[in-house]
C-alpha cells in the first residue's frame, strides 16, 4: 500500500511539473518558430515576472489574480521589447548573434529582477494551503492552480494556432516569412506579436512555477531545464511540448526517486542528460521538422 501511495503521488507531481515544463517549453518554441533562435532570456523573464507577482501581492497587497494579470501584461511588454530591440535589428545576421544578444537580455533582466525583488528576497506566494485527497493522491491547491494555468495556456495557444486568423498568419510567417510577406501579411508585426505571446506564456508559466515552488532566483533553473522538453518536442513544434514536458516531468520525478538515494541531486540533472542525448541522436526532436541546408 505504501508503494502504491508513493508511486501515485510521484506520478501526480510528475504530471504537475510536466505541464509546467510544457508551458515553459512553449515559450521557447513560439520564439523559435518566427526567429529561428532560442530565446535564452526566457529564464530571466520567468524570474522577473514571478517576482513582480510576489512583490505586488506581498508588499503592496494587490490581490493575486490582479497581480497575475499585470505580470502577463508585463511579460507581453518584455517580449515585444526584446523583439524590437534585439530580434529586428539583428535580422539577417547569424542566429548566433541573436542568441548572444538574448544572453545580454538575460543579464539585464536579472539585474532588473534583483532591483524589483530588493536583492532577491525569497518567499512563497501565500496561496491558501488547502489539501485534497483523491484516492491515494494528496494534492494541494497550488498543484491544481499550476496545472490549470499551464494547461489552459497550452490549449489556448494550440487552438489559436489552429483555428484563428492570427494563428494561421503566424503559422504562415514561421513557415516562410518571405512568402508570407508576398501575400501581404504584416510579417514584422506578426513577429513582434509572437515574441509578445511568448512573453505572456513565460509569465503564465512563471506563475504556475511560483505557485508550485518558492519564488526565488533559482526559478531560472527550471526554465533552463525546460529547454530539454523543448528540444525533445522539436524546437518548432507547438502541441509537441506537452509530450516533451510530460516525458521530462516523469523522467525527473521518478529518476529522482530512484537515483537520489545514490547521489543526492542527480535527478535534477537528468534534464541536461536528456538534452545531450536528444542533441546527439535526434537533434530535430520528436515532432520538429528537419532542416535541410543548401550551399
Amino acid at each position: 500500500m505504501d508503494t502504491l501511495y508513493l508511486i501515485a503521488n510521484t506520478a501526480f507531481q510528475a504530471l504537475v511539473m510536466g505541464f509546467i515544463y510544457a508551458a515553459l517549453a512553449l515559450g521557447y518554441n513560439i520564439v523559435y518558430r518566427v526567429s529561428k533562435a532560442v530565446n535564452l532570456a526566457e529564464p530571466e523573464i520567468v524570474v522577473f515576472t514571478a517576482y513582480v507577482v510576489f512583490v505586488l501581492s506581498a508588499y503592496y497587497h494587490v490581490p493575486i489574480p490582479a497581480a497575475f494579470t499585470l505580470s502577463l501584461a508585463l511579460g507581453f511588454g518584455v517580449g515585444v521589447a526584446l523583439e524590437r530591440l534585439l530580434a529586428r535589428p539583428l535580422r539577417g545576421r547569424p542566429v548566433a548573434a541573436l542568441m548572444a544578444a538574448t544572453l545580454g537580455a538575460y543579464y539585464v533582466l536579472r539585474g532588473m529582477s534583483m532591483v524589483v525583488s530588493r536583492g532577491f528576497e525569497m518567499g512563497s506566494l501565500g496561496l491558501p494551503e488547502t489539501y485534497y485527497s483523491i484516492g491515494p493522491v494528496r494534492a494541494s491547491l497550488s498543484d491544481f492552480i499550476a496545472i490549470c494555468v499551464s494547461l489552459s495556456v497550452i490549449v489556448g495557444i494550440v487552438l489559436m494556432h489552429r483555428y484563428t486568423r492570427l494563428g494561421i498568419a503566424m503559422r504562415a510567417v514561421s513557415e516562410d516569412a518571405f512568402g508570407a510577406s508576398a501575400y501581404g501579411l504584416p510579417v514584422t508585426v506578426l513577429t513582434m506579436l509572437s515574441w509578445g505571446i511568448a512573453g505572456v506564456v513565460s509569465a503564465a508559466a512563471a506563475f504556475a512555477l511560483a505557485a508550485k515552488a518558492q519564488v526565488s532566483p533559482m526559478l531560472d533553473f527550471y526554465a533552463i531545464k525546460a529547454l530539454a522538453a523543448s528540444l525533445l518536442a522539436g524546437l518548432d513544434s507547438i502541441a509537441g511540448v506537452v509530450v516533451g514536458g510530460l516525458v521530462l516531468g516523469f523522467m525527473e520525478q521518478f529518476g529522482s526517486l530512484a537515483l537520489d538515494p545514490i547521489l543526492p541531486g542527480l535527478g535534477n540533472q537528468l534534464a541536461f542528460i536528456v538534452m545531450l542525448v536528444v542533441l546527439l541522436f535526434k537533434p530535430y526532436g520528436l515532432f520538429g521538422t528537419e532542416r535541410i541546408e543548401r550551399v
Partner: peptide, 9 residues
C-alpha cells in the same frame, strides 16, 4: 548585470 547586459546588446 544591467550594465554588462546592455553593453553586450
Amino acid at each position: 548585470y544591467v550594465v554588462l547586459g546592455s553593453i553586450v546588446i
